[in-house]
Measured scan of single mutants.
Amino acid sequence: IGSLMYASIFGNVSAIIQRLYSGTARYHTQMLRVREFIRFHQIPNPLRQRLEEYFQHAWSYTNGIDMNAVLKGFPECLQADICLHLNRSLLQHCKPFRGATKGCLRALAMKFKTTHAPPGDTLVHAGDLLTALYFISRGSIEILRGDVVVAILGKNDIFGEPLNLYARPGKSNGDVRALTYCDLHKIHRDDLLEVLDMYPEFSDHFWSSLEITFNLRDTNMIPGSPGSTELEGGFSRQRKRKLSFRRRTDKDTEQPGEVSALGPGRAGAGPSSRGRPGGPWGESPSSGPSSPESSEDEGPGRSSSPLRLVPFSSPRPPGEPPGGEPLMEDCEKSSDTCNPLSGAFSGVSNIFSFWGDSRGRQYQELPRCPAPTPSLLNIPLSSPGRRPRGDVESRLDALQRQLNRLETRLSADMATVLQLLQRQMTLVPPAYSAVTTPGPGPTSTSPLLPVSPLPTLTLDSLSQVSQFMACEELPPGAPELPQEGPTRRLSLPGQLGALTSQPLHRHGSDPG
């Protein structure tokens, strides 16, 4: 009997000691992992102490058991019943959930998450997105703005933001810190809205009876308010094209079509300037034949640059190039080494500058006005007194259609001029006259002087055409309008007829 009692007592005591040691061994194993994590990542002392304290409290609170892992091991129907039991206190005593059906309560219970916070733990920081609604079931918390405590909340209090009033989550206007050990039930806004969409009859009752104890939403960050730039940057990543407008005076608003859609830094370009900076079609017209890549860069430059609305530039004389043409100036200075066709295309550029300027006046029909002061630039669209967005969009579309028509007509005119030049060069190729044979009589004449090349004649003739079109064909006081194609086609051969009437002889060394 004594040996039996000794064996039973010894066996029970050893089993008890073994169970104690097993729990202690698990605790030390998990604690060792936490300390190894702290050492590996070199976490500083204040945060390291918070980690160790939280682990110790969580171990004593749950005995080292992962409740979520245990809950996920059950089937979904059983999980709903378990969640309904775990959140029964909240669902029974909170006013917004009263009167809900059994199915609605089960769906809500599945969406709730339980959070346990030790003292000093910050649940929400200032500036964080308010993605959830919090219900306090135990403990107390404090809300701070800077170093000032603005509120202390306790059991059955609710904090967050009214989700039904805002389409997008706002930002917190303060820090939420736990004063004691707290148990909180939180539900994400997407989950709550999903359940309320499934039960629309409960939705009206819920929003009407929901009383948020403390609204954390920062009202200064609401979209459309003066301080909402940061919020707009976070939620409006896919922005449309940006529009900046110059201020319109009362006198300017009476004149229709007073602005032109141009790229940034293009205030001095012609009315047909689009795409790359520098001139019509993204580059100076005089350098068009020598740089074919300008047409390839036109599309990307047009689509990537934001639109700006600026006044037209001052008018340019008909014979003056659009500006920024070092290529043609070098050719004029060193005409001995340049291609003979460069002079002809220089005359073509003069005609283009004249036609572009006159067509700009035809479509816009307003006098040039000086540029406004820099303080009046970049007025935002949302400022008071601005035109409605639809009106601005319609004006932009009208300007775009005008620019497209202008570009089409300029292309047709350019093709006409090039065809005339090619026809003239085919009839009378460039050549130098040879020395004529002296006559049989004693009164022999001296050799004839060489005839100037055709490109120079073409430049003079085209300059005469531009001056003739600019000065004589337009009646005084009438708006400057571009001439039609047949009129220009008839004027060019008439001007060139006198020049080509002389018999030109080919030089023996000319390969053409």
Rank of each mutant, 00 (worst) to 15 (best):
Pro226Lys: 11
Glu329Tyr: 01
Arg401Ile: 15
Ser140Arg: 11
Ile222Glu: 12
Phe235Arg: 11
Pro455Trp: 06
Arg359Ser: 09
Gly494Cys: 09
Arg266His: 10
Arg168Gln: 13
Ile143Cys: 04
His205Pro: 07
Pro223Gln: 08
Glu472Tyr: 06
Arg248Ser: 09
Gly324Asn: 15
Thr443Glu: 11
Asp250Thr: 12
Gln400Cys: 15
Arg138His: 06
Leu377Trp: 11
Arg506Thr: 07
Leu449His: 15
Glu230Tyr: 07
Ala478Cys: 10
Gln400Tyr: 01
Glu298Cys: 03
Ser209Glu: 13
Leu421His: 09
Pro388Trp: 13
Thr456Lys: 13
Gly170Phe: 03
Glu332Ile: 09
Gly233Asp: 10
Tyr181Ile: 04
Leu499Gly: 13
Leu481Ala: 09
Pro317Ser: 09
Leu396Tyr: 08
Ser342Leu: 05
Met198Leu: 07
Ser452Gln: 12
Gln464His: 04
Leu193Pro: 03
Asp397Gly: 08
Ala434Thr: 08
Leu216Glu: 02
Glu161Gly: 03
Phe206Glu: 01
Ser313Lys: 08
Pro479Asn: 10
Pro447Val: 11
Ala398Asn: 10
Val348Asn: 05
Val195Tyr: 01
Gln495Asn: 09
Ser286Thr: 06
Tyr432Ile: 12
Pro370Ser: 09
Ser273Ile: 14
Ser290Gly: 13
Gly160Trp: 01
Pro315Thr: 07
Val392Met: 15
Asp357His: 14
His505Met: 06
Gly508Cys: 09
Lys240Asn: 15
Gln495Met: 04
Arg361Ala: 08
Asn215Arg: 01
Gln419Pro: 03
Asp250Val: 10
Thr458Ile: 10
Pro486Tyr: 15
Leu459Arg: 06
Val428Met: 01
Arg138Gln: 07
Pro256Val: 10
Phe135Met: 03
Ser225Asp: 13
Leu376Arg: 09
Asp157Leu: 02
Val465Cys: 15
Thr408Lys: 14
Ser452Lys: 11
Gln467Ile: 03
Val195Met: 03
Arg274Lys: 08
Pro322Arg: 10
Cys369Thr: 10
Ser203Glu: 10
Lys240Asp: 14
Pro169Asn: 03
Ala269Tyr: 10
Phe202Ile: 08
Ser463Pro: 08
Gln502Tyr: 10
Ser383Trp: 05
Ser137Glu: 10
Ser411Met: 09
Val465Gly: 10
Glu142Leu: 05
Asn339Met: 08
Asp157Glu: 03
Arg168Leu: 11
Ala269Asp: 08
Pro300Ile: 02
Leu130Arg: 02
Glu320Ala: 07
Gln464Val: 06
Pro318Ala: 15
Ser446Leu: 06
Glu407Ile: 06
Leu403Ala: 05
Asn350Glu: 10
Arg389Glu: 11
Asp413Glu: 05
Gly497Tyr: 13
Thr445Ile: 13
Val451Thr: 15
Ile143Ser: 03
Arg189Phe: 05
Pro226Arg: 09
Asp297Trp: 12
Ser273Thr: 12
Val150Leu: 13
Asp510Thr: 09
Pro271Met: 12
Leu309Arg: 08
Ser501Gln: 08
Ser358Glu: 14
Met221Tyr: 08
Pro374Trp: 05
Leu153Asn: 01
Asn378Asp: 01
Gly497Met: 10
Gly347Ser: 13
Gly439Glu: 05
Gly268Tyr: 11
Glu254Cys: 13
Ser304Arg: 12
Pro264Leu: 10
Glu142Thr: 11
Gly439Ala: 11
Phe214Ile: 07
Pro271Asp: 15
Leu410Arg: 03
Arg138Asn: 13
Leu449Ser: 08
Ser334Phe: 13
Ser313Gly: 10
Ser273Gln: 07
Ala412Val: 08
His507Gln: 07
Gly127Lys: 02
Leu192Phe: 03
Asp157Cys: 08
Leu165Pro: 10
Ser446Glu: 13
Arg361Leu: 07
Arg361Gly: 07
Glu254Lys: 07
Asp297Thr: 05
Glu211Thr: 10
Ala151Ser: 06
His205Thr: 10
Gly439Phe: 15
Thr131Gln: 10
Glu393Tyr: 01
Leu396Phe: 11
Glu296Tyr: 03
Leu481Ser: 05
Ser291Leu: 15
Glu298Asp: 15
Ala261Asp: 13
Gly360Ala: 13
Leu420His: 11
Ala269Gly: 09
Thr180Tyr: 01
Tyr363Met: 08
Leu366Gln: 10
Leu492Gln: 09
Ala498Val: 12
Lys186His: 13
Ile351Thr: 14
Cys338Lys: 15
Gln424Phe: 08
Leu262Phe: 08
Leu243Asp: 09
Arg359Asp: 04
Ala269Met: 09
Leu216Lys: 01
Ser225Leu: 12
Arg423Val: 09
Ser209Met: 12
Ser140Thr: 10
Ala398Gly: 12
Gln502Cys: 09
Gly268Gln: 13
Ser509Phe: 06
Phe345Gln: 11
Ser273Tyr: 09
Ser137Arg: 09
Leu449Val: 07
Pro380Cys: 05
Pro447Cys: 06
Arg248Glu: 10
Ala498Tyr: 11
Ser314Ile: 09
Gln495Val: 10
Leu504Lys: 05
Leu366Gly: 13
Ala151Tyr: 01
Glu325Arg: 07
Pro162Cys: 07
Ser375Met: 08
Glu472Trp: 11
Ser358Asp: 08
Leu462Ser: 09
Thr213Lys: 03
Lys242Asp: 13
Pro374Cys: 12
Lys186Leu: 09
Leu454Gln: 07
Met198Ser: 09
Leu129Gln: 12
Val348Thr: 13
Leu420Cys: 06
Glu298Thr: 05
Thr437Asp: 08
Gly224Phe: 11
Arg401Pro: 01
Ile143Phe: 01
Gly154Phe: 04
Leu381His: 08
Gly265Ser: 11
